[in-house]
């Protein structure tokens, strides 16, 4: 009971802080805080979706950035064709409305994940990690080679996707959109991990043989989880492209997958909400350390090691206690 109240307190305070971030940024006259805040909300979505795999299903995907970047490219490519009135593959017209583009980004990512997962999940353990990594690298090189869409340099576009009632240049409004999407996403994920499906998933993490012996087909359940989690990454990627008005192959590089894993572990794997804290810690540290040295990852490493040693359940475990 006391634990539950502590959970609610930590969660409530975190969201209160995020809600008031724009006012804080104005008060401190640090407008950069707003961009950092949007970045945190977006990474938190991606990290929470990865936590479904790592923390709940026990599937260590090392290709999550592949789906994050793919979602971003859907936004970028549709904006590109909308800008010059051309057709994607000669059939699909460009689009800029968020209510169309974002669901398309989710659907495209989910389909890619279904195909990639169907093959990767024939393996397990280290082979599964390598398979997901390899597929993400293939996506990376695919986008590097697409010169029409900027190749190595990436693809910029002028306007964010249009949302009803929201001015495209309003950064504060866009921040609140990201925060709202994060909140909805976390609520949906909370329901998911407590549902029948979520219980089966956690059972598979603990003991696959036992689960098969009570009648579960592990492959189908894992494929569904992989698809859902990857679609979450695609949604985050679509938001990220909107934040930056730019996508590049960097967003699906394996180092990005590594960053997302770091966020999950920092926040506390298997805690879902920890993803928000992990993303905040990561983005915060990165921006502080980057002022100090461009090799900020050198300092990030020891900090990560210390966090894991001090708090095995990550920052969420430290603040909110067990489970």
């Amino acid at each position: 009971m006391a634990d539950n109240r502590r959970h609610a307190a930590v969660l409530g305070l975190t969201f209160l802080l995020l809600l008031l971030l724009p006012q804080l940024a104005t008060a401190l006259s640090k407008p950069d805080l707003l961009t950092l805040g949007s970045q945190i909300a977006i990474y938190a979505i991606a990290a929470a979706s990865l936590d479904l795999l790592i923390g709940y299903a026990g599937m260590s995907s090392f290709g999550h950035a592949g789906f994050f970047g793919l979602g971003g490219y859907v936004v970028g490519i549709l904006a590109f064709h909308a800008a010059d009135n051309s057709l994607f593959l000669g059939i699909v017209p460009g689009l800029t409305d968020a209510w169309l583009v974002w669901p398309i980004a989710i659907a495209v990512t989910a389909l890619a994940a279904l195909a990639i997962g169907a093959l990767s999940l024939r393996t397990s353990g280290v082979s599964f990690i390598m398979m997901t990594l390899a597929f993400a690298e293939m996506l990376y090189f695919l986008f590097v080679s697409l010169k029409t869409y900027g190749g190595d340099d990436g693809l910029g576009f002028r306007r964010r996707n249009a949302l009803p009632w929201i001015a495209p240049r309003d950064d504060v409004a866009f921040y609140y959109v990201c925060l709202a999407v994060l909140a909805i996403f976390l609520i949906a994920m909370r329901h998911l991990v407590q549902s029948r499906f979520g219980m089966v998933l956690q059972g598979l993490r603990q003991n696959e043989r036992r689960m098969a012996a009570i009648g579960v087909a592990p492959y189908r359940v894992r494929l569904a989880a992989f698809t859902i989690a990857s679609a979450g990454a695609g949604l985050a990627g679509a938001l990220n492209a909107n934040l930056l008005r730019y996508v590049s192959p960097d967003s699906l590089h394996w180092t990005m997958s590594g960053d997302l894993m770091v966020m999950v572990v920092l926040g506390g794997a298997g805690s879902l909400y920890g993803a928000v804290l992990g993303a905040a810690a990561f983005v915060g540290l990165q921006s502080v350390l980057a002022q100090w040295t461009e090799h900020w990852m050198i300092a990030m490493g020891p900090i990560l090691v210390c966090t894991v040693l001090v708090a095995r359940r990550g920052i969420w475990g430290l603040l909110a206690g067990r489970r």
Binding site: S195, R196, F197, M199, V216
Partner: peptide, 10 residues
């Protein structure tokens, strides 16, 4: 019904 996603199982 292992594929029920939303209603709480616990």
């Amino acid at each position: 019904h292992p594929f029920r996603f939303l209603r709480s199982a616990r």
